[in-house]
Design a protein around this nucleic acid. Structure first.
Length: 425
RNA sequence: GGAGAGGUGACCGAGUGGUCGAAGGUGACGGUCUCGAAAACCGUUGUACGGGUUUCCGUACCCAGGGUUCGAAUCCCUGCCUCUCCGCCA
């Protein structure tokens, strides 16, 4: 949610925003409703004032045994008008809020302007792409040959875009989660283990709603959703709270699965682990003072990058253009890991500064230097998407004989295992 | 799932129809005292929106949404949440 006064006083910026982020809403209607709400509210408050004054007077009369019937009739006389005004005001207000909830957050000035991902900009590259004396295989072929992942049988359980990991494959997934959580813990993030389902309000606070309702799995009887990212529970964890200023910045990390319907992505990445309905992720999340959030974004991004570096996986860091950014973000870095079989970099993390956009919806505040209640800023980043990391390891560490070398930092998590080899049957 | 109790300001807690935005306490802040600190004492301390804009005025808010009433934190209804007991269950 954007600040209402800001919207009111910056129509030019709002129009530019709607253009830059490809938002779909009727700006004229938004401003018409805002004006109407203000007008109705003023009129309504005037009537309430009169009613309050008369009621007080009636109270006094009754106390002293005077006759209040005249006054009571006077109050009664404005009932209908007041009721109607109230109704109109509420209706306009609801319509306004509904419309305003479709306004995305405003991109930071440092973000490249562009319609889509073609305008994204490379920030830096890290690591050397491995050279193979043979044609590197995709992770799904290798993984199936090694017997550590099974896409075929997963369909019997849940259909397409799911997977079953087996043996060392399952252990590798678990090792990655533990490794990432441990690293985040070392960097000062508090580990959180939250619910994997969330109420409608949590999704709205996070700005997954209203825009992404069709992209989520829903439990209609309870009006709950399977979380599409740990960002949802981590934001709502402190919703409605006044955070003690000395506590900021608050850093949280959480492992959760993420559930996404991937509606509208038919035919994209149909093979392998890149695009699944359920995938594991270790999330990094931060609440900061406003003045520190962009600095925190650099730190948080660096923290995510450090995981890739520790795993010695080549990657590049990209800043997303205005048209490619998510709804709530003002500035987003994507980390893209090298996938040898595709010969491409693929997104493995996305780190965003949502400034006060989510905090306003969730009501998370603190006392600033002037002791005024202010909204905190929220940031989130994957650190990292575990399934895609799994895939990147299999592909980057593959050997000619079809085995996969285990990255050194993971070996202690796998009982010292150095190489994943095919299970003989 | 069944029965009961309850949800009040940063926190604890009083308040069962009018003068209650709300006692008291804690915390925080300012001051007195002190070399300094603690203690003690005095004072200050809600949010949002709208209007005027130098300290001002108004409206709303005592979980949320409806209702009764001239008037509701206080009465009624619904929902959500918490606690206790029973049942069920990993």
């Amino acid at each position: 949610m954007l600040d209402r006064k800001f919207i009111r006083e910056n129509r030019d910026k709002i129009e530019a925003l709607v253009e830059a982020k490809n938002a779909k809403l009727d700006v004229d209607q938004l401003y018409r409703l805002d004006g109407e709400v203000l007008r109705l509210k003023q009129e309504l408050e005037g009537m309430r004032k009169k009613r309050n004054e008369l009621s007080t007077e009636i109270g006094k009369q009754k106390k002293t045994g005077g006759d209040a019937s005249q006054l009571m009739a006077e109050v009664k006389a404005q009932d209908d008008k007041e009721k109607e005004l109230n109704e109109q005001h509420r209706k306009s207000e609801d319509e306004y809020l509904e419309l305003a909830s479709w306004l995305p957050n405003i991109p930071d000035d440092s973000v490249p302007v562009g319609k889509d991902e073609s305008a994204n900009k490379l920030i830096r590259e890290w690591g050397k792409q491995p050279e193979f004396a043979f044609k590197p295989l995709p992770h799904y072929e290798l993984g199936e040959a090694l017997g550590i992942i099974d896409f075929q049988r997963a369909t019997k359980i849940a259909g397409a875009r799911f997977n079953v990991m087996c043996g060392k494959g399952a252990a590798l997934e678990r090792a990655l989660i533990s490794f990432m959580l441990d690293r985040a813990g070392e960097k000062g993030y508090l580990e959180i283990y939250p619910p994997f389902m969330a109420a409608r309000e949590s999704l709205f606070n996070c700005a997954q709603l209203p825009k992404l309702e069709d992209d989520m799995y829903r439990l209609p009887e309870d009006d709950m959703f399977l979380i599409p990212t740990a960002e949802v529970p981590l934001l709502s964890f402190r919703a409605g709270e006044e955070i003690k200023t000395a506590e900021l910045p608050l850093l949280y990390t959480a492992y959760t699965p993420s559930f996404r319907r991937e509606a509208g992505s038919y035919g994209k990445d149909t093979r392998g682990l890149i695009r699944q309905h359920q995938f594991d992720k270790v999330e990094l999340f931060a609440l900061t003072k406003p003045a520190e959030s962009f600095e925190q974004l650099e730190k948080l991004t660096a923290d995510a990058e450090s995981i890739l570096q520790a795993l010695a996986l080549p990657y590049q860091t990209v800043i997303l253009s205005t048209g490619d950014m998510s709804f709530a973000s003002t500035k987003t870095y994507d980390l893209e890991v090298w996938m040898p079989a595709q010969g491409k970099y693929r997104e493995i993390s996305s780190c965003s500064n949502c400034t006060d956009f989510q905090a306003r919806r969730a009501g998370i505040r603190f006392r600033d230097e002037n002791k005024k209640l202010s909204l905190v800023h929220t940031l989130n980043g994957s650190g990292l998407a575990v399934g895609r990391t799994w895939a990147a390891i299999i592909e980057n560490y593959q050997q000619q004989d079809g085995s996969v070398v285990v990255p050194e930092v993971l070996r202690s998590y796998l009982g010292g295992l150095e190489t994943i080899i095919a299970v003989k049957d």
